[in-house]
Protein backbone atom coordinates (compact mmCIF):
# COMPACT_ATOMS: atom_id res chain seq x y z
CA UNK A 1 0.00 0.00 0.00
CA UNK A 2 3.04 2.30 0.36
CA UNK A 3 2.86 3.50 -3.24
CA UNK A 4 -0.79 4.47 -2.85
CA UNK A 5 -1.14 8.22 -2.23
CA UNK A 6 -4.28 9.23 -0.36
CA UNK A 7 -4.87 12.72 1.06
CA UNK A 8 -8.00 13.82 2.89
CA UNK A 9 -8.88 17.46 3.36
CA UNK A 10 -11.65 18.85 5.53
CA UNK A 11 -13.14 22.00 3.97
CA UNK A 12 -13.46 25.29 5.86
CA UNK A 13 -16.84 26.66 6.95
CA UNK A 14 -19.31 27.45 5.48
CA UNK A 15 -18.71 24.65 2.94
CA UNK A 16 -17.92 22.21 5.74
CA UNK A 17 -21.60 22.11 6.63
CA UNK A 18 -22.32 20.39 3.28
CA UNK A 19 -18.99 18.78 2.36
CA UNK A 20 -17.44 16.42 4.87
CA UNK A 21 -14.17 15.92 3.00
CA UNK A 22 -12.37 16.23 -0.31
CA UNK A 23 -9.85 13.51 -1.08
CA UNK A 24 -7.14 12.86 -3.60
CA UNK A 25 -6.06 9.31 -4.54
CA UNK A 26 -3.36 8.03 -6.86
CA UNK A 27 -1.97 4.52 -7.02
CA UNK A 28 -2.71 0.90 -7.67
CA UNK A 29 -4.58 -1.17 -5.11
CA UNK A 30 -3.21 -4.70 -4.50
CA UNK A 31 -6.55 -6.36 -5.22
CA UNK A 32 -9.11 -6.54 -8.01
CA UNK A 33 -12.13 -4.93 -6.43
CA UNK A 34 -13.56 -3.94 -3.08
CA UNK A 35 -16.93 -3.74 -1.42
CA UNK A 36 -17.42 -0.44 0.35
CA UNK A 37 -19.95 -0.28 3.20
CA UNK A 38 -22.29 2.74 3.32
CA UNK A 39 -21.65 5.75 5.55
CA UNK A 40 -24.97 7.49 4.84
CA UNK A 41 -23.21 10.00 2.58
CA UNK A 42 -23.41 10.77 -1.11
CA UNK A 43 -20.01 10.71 -2.82
CA UNK A 44 -18.84 11.92 -6.21
CA UNK A 45 -15.46 11.57 -7.86
CA UNK A 46 -13.66 13.09 -10.78
CA UNK A 47 -11.61 10.42 -12.54
CA UNK A 48 -8.32 11.69 -13.95
CA UNK A 49 -6.67 8.38 -14.88
CA UNK A 50 -7.73 4.88 -15.88
CA UNK A 51 -11.48 4.10 -15.93
CA UNK A 52 -13.21 2.98 -12.76
CA UNK A 53 -16.19 0.61 -12.57
CA UNK A 54 -18.73 1.05 -9.77
CA UNK A 55 -21.75 -1.19 -9.14
CA UNK A 56 -24.59 -0.36 -6.74
CA UNK A 57 -26.53 -2.61 -4.38
CA UNK A 58 -23.78 -5.11 -3.51
CA UNK A 59 -23.14 -5.84 -7.18
CA UNK A 60 -26.81 -6.41 -8.04
CA UNK A 61 -27.65 -2.82 -9.05
CA UNK A 62 -26.63 -0.47 -11.85
CA UNK A 63 -23.04 -0.59 -13.15
CA UNK A 64 -21.12 2.45 -14.38
CA UNK A 65 -17.75 2.39 -16.14
CA UNK A 66 -16.29 5.87 -16.48
CA UNK A 67 -13.05 7.73 -17.18
CA UNK A 68 -14.76 11.04 -16.35
CA UNK A 69 -16.54 10.77 -13.02
CA UNK A 70 -19.12 8.88 -10.98
CA UNK A 71 -21.84 9.97 -8.57
CA UNK A 72 -22.83 7.50 -5.85
CA UNK A 73 -26.14 8.44 -4.19
CA UNK A 74 -27.09 7.79 -0.56
CA UNK A 75 -27.32 4.05 0.02
CA UNK A 76 -27.63 1.36 2.68
CA UNK A 77 -26.08 -1.51 0.70
CA UNK A 78 -22.41 -1.85 -0.25
CA UNK A 79 -21.09 -0.38 -3.49
CA UNK A 80 -18.48 -2.33 -5.46
CA UNK A 81 -15.46 -0.34 -6.61
CA UNK A 82 -13.29 -1.87 -9.34
CA UNK A 83 -10.39 0.14 -10.78
CA UNK A 84 -9.36 -1.01 -14.26
CA UNK A 85 -5.79 0.18 -13.76
CA UNK A 86 -4.16 2.91 -11.71
CA UNK A 87 -6.63 4.89 -9.62
CA UNK A 88 -6.22 8.64 -10.10
CA UNK A 89 -9.18 10.58 -8.79
CA UNK A 90 -10.38 13.50 -6.70
CA UNK A 91 -13.45 12.75 -4.61
CA UNK A 92 -16.02 14.70 -2.62
CA UNK A 93 -17.80 13.18 0.38
CA UNK A 94 -20.94 15.16 1.20
CA UNK A 95 -22.48 15.43 4.64
CA UNK A 96 -25.83 13.61 4.88
CA UNK A 97 -27.67 16.91 4.21
CA UNK A 98 -25.21 18.10 1.53
CA UNK A 99 -26.91 16.84 -1.66
CA UNK A 100 -29.45 19.63 -2.15
CA UNK A 101 -27.18 22.66 -1.53
CA UNK A 102 -24.11 21.22 -3.29
CA UNK A 103 -25.63 19.48 -6.30
CA UNK A 104 -29.16 20.92 -6.40
CA UNK A 105 -30.55 17.39 -6.71
CA UNK A 106 -33.35 15.46 -4.99
CA UNK A 107 -31.56 12.96 -2.69
CA UNK A 108 -34.36 10.35 -2.82
CA UNK A 109 -33.91 10.09 -6.59
CA UNK A 110 -30.25 9.12 -6.07
CA UNK A 111 -30.79 6.49 -3.40
CA UNK A 112 -29.01 3.22 -4.12
CA UNK A 113 -27.84 4.46 -7.53
CA UNK A 114 -24.55 5.09 -9.34
CA UNK A 115 -24.61 7.69 -12.14
CA UNK A 116 -22.31 9.20 -14.74
CA UNK A 117 -21.21 12.45 -13.12
CA UNK A 118 -21.21 14.43 -16.38
CA UNK A 119 -24.80 13.37 -17.17
CA UNK A 120 -26.11 13.96 -13.67
CA UNK A 121 -24.38 17.28 -12.97
CA UNK A 122 -23.77 19.78 -15.80
CA UNK A 123 -21.16 21.76 -13.79
CA UNK A 124 -18.89 18.69 -13.61
CA UNK A 125 -17.25 19.10 -17.03
CA UNK A 126 -15.92 22.60 -16.31
CA UNK A 127 -14.65 21.62 -12.86
CA UNK A 128 -12.85 18.55 -14.21
CA UNK A 129 -11.05 20.72 -16.80
CA UNK A 130 -9.84 23.00 -13.98
CA UNK A 131 -8.58 19.97 -12.03
CA UNK A 132 -6.68 18.63 -15.04
CA UNK A 133 -4.99 22.04 -15.37
CA UNK A 134 -3.55 21.88 -11.84
CA UNK A 135 -0.07 20.50 -11.22
CA UNK A 136 -0.20 18.95 -7.77
CA UNK A 137 -2.74 17.25 -5.50
CA UNK A 138 -3.10 20.06 -2.97
CA UNK A 139 -3.79 22.60 -5.74
CA UNK A 140 -6.48 20.28 -7.13
CA UNK A 141 -8.15 19.96 -3.75
CA UNK A 142 -8.04 23.75 -3.17
CA UNK A 143 -9.46 24.44 -6.64
CA UNK A 144 -12.30 22.00 -6.03
CA UNK A 145 -13.02 23.51 -2.61
CA UNK A 146 -13.09 27.03 -4.14
CA UNK A 147 -15.44 25.90 -6.94
CA UNK A 148 -17.87 24.17 -4.58
CA UNK A 149 -17.83 27.19 -2.23
CA UNK A 150 -18.74 29.52 -5.09
CA UNK A 151 -21.63 27.41 -6.41
CA UNK A 152 -23.16 26.04 -3.20
CA UNK A 153 -26.81 26.96 -2.52
CA UNK A 154 -28.31 28.54 0.58
CA UNK A 155 -29.55 26.50 3.53
CA UNK A 156 -33.23 25.59 3.19
CA UNK A 157 -35.49 26.03 6.18
CA UNK A 158 -35.75 22.91 8.30
CA UNK A 159 -32.25 21.67 7.52
CA UNK A 160 -30.84 22.66 10.92
CA UNK A 161 -33.52 20.55 12.59
CA UNK A 162 -32.40 17.54 10.53
CA UNK A 163 -28.75 18.26 11.41
CA UNK A 164 -29.77 18.13 15.09
CA UNK A 165 -31.62 14.87 14.50
CA UNK A 166 -28.53 13.43 12.79
CA UNK A 167 -26.36 14.39 15.76
CA UNK A 168 -28.74 12.58 18.10
CA UNK A 169 -28.78 9.46 15.91
CA UNK A 170 -24.97 9.49 15.54
CA UNK A 171 -24.55 9.83 19.31
CA UNK A 172 -26.94 6.95 19.98
CA UNK A 173 -28.01 4.90 16.94
CA UNK A 174 -30.33 2.77 19.10
CA UNK A 175 -32.42 5.77 20.19
CA UNK A 176 -36.03 5.28 18.97
CA UNK A 177 -36.87 7.63 16.11
CA UNK A 178 -39.94 8.79 18.08
CA UNK A 179 -37.57 10.06 20.81
CA UNK A 180 -35.44 11.86 18.21
CA UNK A 181 -38.61 13.52 16.87
CA UNK A 182 -39.65 14.58 20.36
CA UNK A 183 -36.17 16.05 21.01
CA UNK A 184 -36.34 18.26 17.92
CA UNK A 185 -39.99 19.16 18.61
CA UNK A 186 -41.77 17.70 15.60
CA UNK A 187 -44.13 14.76 15.12
CA UNK A 188 -42.70 11.38 14.21
CA UNK A 189 -44.12 11.44 10.68
CA UNK A 190 -42.93 15.02 10.09
CA UNK A 191 -39.39 14.04 11.09
CA UNK A 192 -39.37 10.95 8.85
CA UNK A 193 -40.52 12.99 5.84
CA UNK A 194 -38.27 15.99 6.40
CA UNK A 195 -35.25 13.77 7.09
CA UNK A 196 -35.83 11.80 3.89
CA UNK A 197 -36.32 15.07 1.96
CA UNK A 198 -32.84 16.29 2.94
CA UNK A 199 -30.91 13.01 3.32
CA UNK A 200 -32.50 10.63 0.79
CA UNK A 201 -32.67 7.74 3.22
CA UNK A 202 -35.03 7.43 6.17
CA UNK A 203 -33.90 8.08 9.76
CA UNK A 204 -34.49 4.42 10.61
CA UNK A 205 -32.22 3.23 7.78
CA UNK A 206 -29.61 5.82 8.76
CA UNK A 207 -29.66 4.73 12.41
CA UNK A 208 -29.20 1.11 11.35
CA UNK A 209 -26.20 1.77 9.17
CA UNK A 210 -24.59 4.17 11.68
CA UNK A 211 -24.79 1.46 14.34
CA UNK A 212 -22.90 -0.85 12.01
CA UNK A 213 -20.35 1.93 11.23
CA UNK A 214 -19.73 2.23 14.95
CA UNK A 215 -19.07 -1.51 15.13
CA UNK A 216 -16.73 -1.48 12.10
CA UNK A 217 -14.78 1.54 13.32
CA UNK A 218 -14.25 -0.02 16.75
CA UNK A 219 -13.29 -3.44 15.41
CA UNK A 220 -9.67 -4.60 15.69
CA UNK A 221 -9.38 -7.30 13.02
CA UNK A 222 -6.08 -8.53 14.47
CA UNK A 223 -7.77 -9.65 17.68
CA UNK A 224 -10.33 -12.35 18.30
CA UNK A 225 -13.76 -10.75 18.55
CA UNK A 226 -16.52 -11.84 20.90
CA UNK A 227 -19.43 -11.21 18.53
CA UNK A 228 -22.11 -12.19 21.03
CA UNK A 229 -20.72 -9.71 23.54
CA UNK A 230 -20.33 -7.00 20.91
CA UNK A 231 -23.89 -7.44 19.63
CA UNK A 232 -25.31 -6.89 23.10
CA UNK A 233 -23.09 -3.92 23.94
CA UNK A 234 -24.08 -2.13 20.73
CA UNK A 235 -27.77 -2.80 21.24
CA UNK A 236 -28.54 -5.66 18.84
CA UNK A 237 -31.23 -8.03 20.02
CA UNK A 238 -28.91 -10.99 19.52
CA UNK A 239 -25.96 -12.18 17.46
CA UNK A 240 -28.20 -13.38 14.60
CA UNK A 241 -29.59 -9.86 14.16
CA UNK A 242 -26.09 -8.40 14.20
CA UNK A 243 -24.96 -10.81 11.47
CA UNK A 244 -28.01 -9.98 9.36
CA UNK A 245 -27.30 -6.22 9.56
CA UNK A 246 -23.58 -6.85 9.00
CA UNK A 247 -24.29 -8.70 5.74
CA UNK A 248 -26.84 -6.13 4.65
CA UNK A 249 -24.38 -3.24 4.95
CA UNK A 250 -20.99 -4.82 4.16
CA UNK A 251 -22.09 -7.59 1.75
CA UNK A 252 -20.17 -10.26 3.70
CA UNK A 253 -20.34 -12.12 7.01
CA UNK A 254 -18.26 -10.91 9.98
CA UNK A 255 -15.82 -13.81 9.47
CA UNK A 256 -15.38 -13.04 5.76
CA UNK A 257 -14.87 -9.37 6.62
CA UNK A 258 -12.12 -10.08 9.15
CA UNK A 259 -10.40 -12.55 6.80
CA UNK A 260 -10.42 -10.09 3.88
CA UNK A 261 -9.13 -7.19 5.98
CA UNK A 262 -6.33 -9.30 7.47
CA UNK A 263 -5.27 -10.66 4.09
CA UNK A 264 -4.96 -7.18 2.55
CA UNK A 265 -3.93 -4.89 5.34
CA UNK A 266 -1.84 -7.38 7.36
CA UNK A 267 -0.91 -6.42 10.87
CA UNK A 268 -1.74 -2.74 10.68
CA UNK A 269 -5.15 -2.03 9.19
CA UNK A 270 -5.37 1.72 8.51
CA UNK A 271 -8.12 3.52 10.41
CA UNK A 272 -9.78 4.67 7.20
CA UNK A 273 -10.08 1.05 5.99
CA UNK A 274 -13.20 0.45 8.11
CA UNK A 275 -15.99 -0.85 5.89
CA UNK A 276 -13.71 -1.88 3.00
CA UNK A 277 -13.77 -5.52 1.90
CA UNK A 278 -11.01 -6.17 -0.64
CA UNK A 279 -11.59 -9.07 -3.04
CA UNK A 280 -8.91 -10.72 -5.15
Amino acid sequence: MSDFVFHVHEPEPPLHRWVESIWYAKGTVPYKREKIAPTGSTVFLFILGDPIIETADNGEGETIRSDFGILVGPHDRPVINEPTGETHAVGVVLTPVGVRPTLGMVPSNLRGRVLHLNEAWPEAAGIRQLLLGEGDPSAMVSTLERQLTSTVGAAESGVSRIESALQLIEADPVLPIADVAASVDVSHSHLVREFTYFVGITPRAMARLLRLRRLLEGLDVRDATDWADLSVSLGWYDQAHLIRDFKRHTGVTPTEYVTAQRATFGQVAPEDAAGFVPQS
Binding site: R77, R113, D245
Partner: peptide, 17 residues
Protein backbone atom coordinates in the same frame (compact mmCIF):
# COMPACT_ATOMS: atom_id res chain seq x y z
CA UNK B 1 -40.36 -5.70 8.11
CA UNK B 2 -39.21 -2.05 7.93
CA UNK B 3 -35.60 -3.30 7.46
CA UNK B 4 -36.68 -4.74 4.11
CA UNK B 5 -37.38 -1.25 2.76
CA UNK B 6 -33.83 -1.07 1.40
CA UNK B 7 -31.97 0.50 -1.54
CA UNK B 8 -33.66 -1.90 -3.98
CA UNK B 9 -37.19 -1.09 -2.83
CA UNK B 10 -36.34 2.64 -2.90
CA UNK B 11 -34.99 2.33 -6.45
CA UNK B 12 -38.17 0.53 -7.65
CA UNK B 13 -40.32 3.30 -6.17
CA UNK B 14 -38.07 5.89 -7.86
CA UNK B 15 -38.32 4.04 -11.21
CA UNK B 16 -42.13 3.92 -10.93
CA UNK B 17 -42.14 7.66 -10.11
Amino acid sequence: SPEDVDDSVASWIAAAY
